[in-house]
C-alpha cells in the first residue's frame, strides 16, 4: 500500500512543481467560458434557455477535468520516454498497485484542476442554484476524474511513443468533449447525435455536474452515477490489464 501512496505523492509533487502548467491549463477553460458563456448569452436568452453562463460553467468544469485526467494518464508516455517507467516496472511491487497509485494521483490532480476552474467560474459570475448540492457536484467531479484517469492510463500503456498523441487528441479526447453536451443541451438532438452523446461517458458526468449545480438534470442523478461507476470499474480493469502487459 505504501507503493500506491508514494506514487500518488509523486504525481502531486510533480504537479505542484509545474506552476506554469497549472496556470497554462486554466487558459483553455477560461476561453470557452468567455466565448460560450458570454458570446452566446444573447442567443441563449432569446431561445428561452436562461443564462448561457449558468449552462456552460458546469460543462467547462467537466472539460478541464476530462483533459487533465486523461493527460495525466498519458503522462505515462513521458515516463517511458525519460526512462522512469522502467524503474517502476521492475520494482517488486504488483503492477496493479503501481497503476492504481498513478491513476489516483492523476485523478487527484484533475480534481484540484476542476476545483480551480470552478473558482474561476464563480469569479466570472457563475452562481450555483444551491450550495447544499456541492458535495454531489464534487462526487460527480471525482467520478469523471477516475473514469478518465483510468482511460488515460490505458492509452498510455497501449501506445509506445508520444507521436500518436495528436491522434488521441483529435479522435478521442475532443470527440469525448464535444459529444458530451458540455456545450449544448441534450434535449431535442437529431437521432445520430443523440445516440453518440449517450455513448459518451462524459455526458453522464456533465449531466451530473449540471444537475448538482443548477438543478437541470437530463438523465437524473441515479442513472448518471450508476453509469459512471460501471464505466470507471471497466476502465480501471482495462487499465490494469494493459499496464500489466507493458514492455519497454
Amino acid at each position: 500500500m505504501s507503493a500506491v501512496y508514494i506514487l500518488w505523492l509523486r504525481e502531486l509533487k510533480r504537479y505542484s512543481r509545474s506552476r506554469a502548467q497549472i496556470v497554462g491549463s486554466l487558459g483553455q477553460p477560461i476561453l470557452y467560458l468567455l466565448t460560450f458563456g458570454f458570446g452566446f448569452g444573447a442567443v441563449f436568452q432569446r431561445a428561452g434557455l436562461g443564462s448561457s453562463l449558468q449552462f456552460i460553467a458546469p460543462g467547462v468544469i467537466g472539460m478541464s477535468v476530462l483533459f487533465s485526467s486523461i493527460f495525466s494518464g498519458i503522462g505515462l508516455l513521458w515516463d517511458r520516454q525519460f526512462g522512469f517507467l522502467k524503474e517502476t516496472l521492475v520494482a517488486p511491487v504488483p503492477r496493479i498497485y503501481i497503476m492504481i497509485g498513478r491513476t489516483l494521483g492523476g485523478a487527484t490532480i484533475a480534481m484540484i484542476q476542476g476545483t480551480l476552474v470552478l473558482i474561476v467560474c464563480l469569479i466570472a459570475g457563475f452562481r450555483p442554484a444551491t450550495l447544499s448540492m456541492l458535495p454531489v457536484a464534487l462526487l460527480f467531479m471525482a467520478l469523471i476524474c477516475i473514469v478518465f484517469a483510468a482511460l488515460g492510463t490505458t492509452i498510455g500503456s497501449a501506445l509506445q511513443s508520444m507521436q500518436a498523441f495528436p491522434l488521441v487528441m483529435n479522435f478521442l479526447v475532443m470527440p469525448l468533449f464535444f459529444l458530451s453536451g458540455a456545450l449544448f443541451p441534450l434535449a431535442g438532438l437529431p437521432g445520430g447525435l443523440a445516440v453518440a452523446t449517450k455513448l459518451d461517458p462524459l455526458t453522464y458526468g456533465i449531466d451530473g455536474l449540471r444537475g448538482a449545480f443548477i438543478g437541470a438534470w437530463h438523465f437524473g442523478a441515479g442513472l448518471d452515477a450508476a453509469i459512471l461507476v460501471v464505466v470507471a470499474v471497466a476502465f480501471l480493469a482495462l487499465g490494469a490489464y494493459t499496464f500489466s502487459k507493458v514492455q519497454v
Binding site: 507503493a3 506514487l7 509523486r10
Partner: peptide
Amino acid sequence: FGIVFQDPSLDGDLTAYENLDLHGVLYH
C-alpha cells in the same frame, strides 16, 4: 534483483533524495 539501467531512469522533477526515497519504498 536490483538493476542499474544503461539509460536514464530517474524522475527529473523530483529531488535526488526523493528519487532514492521512492525507490526505497518500492523495494521495501
